[in-house]
Amino acid sequence: MKKTLSILAVIILFTASTFAQGFKVKASGEQTFKFADNKNQATFFSTTPFEDITGLTNDVKGSVSFNVSDLKTLNGKLSVSVSSIKTGIEMRDGHLQSAGWLNAESYPEISFEIKKTSNIKQVADNKVTAKVTGNFSLHGSTKEVVADATLTYLDASEQTQMRAPGDLLGVQAKFNVKLSDYGVDNKLVGQKVSENIEVSVNVVGSNAK
C-alpha cells in the first residue's frame, strides 16, 4: 500500500512539474514586475462610418507577480488614466473624456485585474502565450474579460539596461469590450462609434527593486 502511494505521489509530482508552464530563464521563484515608464501604452481601436479611431495612452501603471516556472500563479493589476487618452483630434479627446462618454471626472481610471491564467503555451524558452482572465473596470462598471496575451522574459543585459534596470517582462495583450456592457453611449462627436472596441496593451515591466 505504502509503495503504491509513493509511486502515485511521484507520478503526481512529475505530472505537475511537466504541465507547470513557465519561463526557462536565469531567474527563479516569485518575481514582481512593475510597469512604470512612459513608453508603456494601452490603445483602443474603433470604427465609425467615416474613419477608424485609435485612442492611445502612455500613462499605464501597475505590476504583475508570478512564479517564473509556473505562469498559472500570475496575478496583478494594470490601470490607465482616462484623462491621458489621445485620439489625434483635441476636440474629440475632450468629448471622449466628458461626462457624456467616459466621464474622466467621475471615473478617472480604467483597470484590468488578473484573476486567472489558462491555455499557457510555451513559444520559446522566454516566451509564452496564454489566455488571461480578469476583471475589466470602465465607466464605473466591472465585467470579466479574457485577453489573449503574449509574455516575453528578457534577462538583464546591456541592451535591456537601455530601457530599465533588472530583468524585463514584455506583455502584449488584446481583448474586446462591448461599450453597452459598461453603460457607455456609443456616440462620439456625432459619429456612430462601433459597439465593440478592441483594447490592446503593450507594456514592459522591470523587476528591479
Partner: peptide
Amino acid sequence: EIFTKSQVLVDKTTDLDRMLGVENKEY
C-alpha cells in the same frame, strides 16, 4: 482624411521592443 487632425500616430517600435514582443506607437 475626413477630419482635420492635430496629431498623427507614428510607429516607434525599437529592436528591443521587438525582442520583448511589444509595439510602441506615439501620437
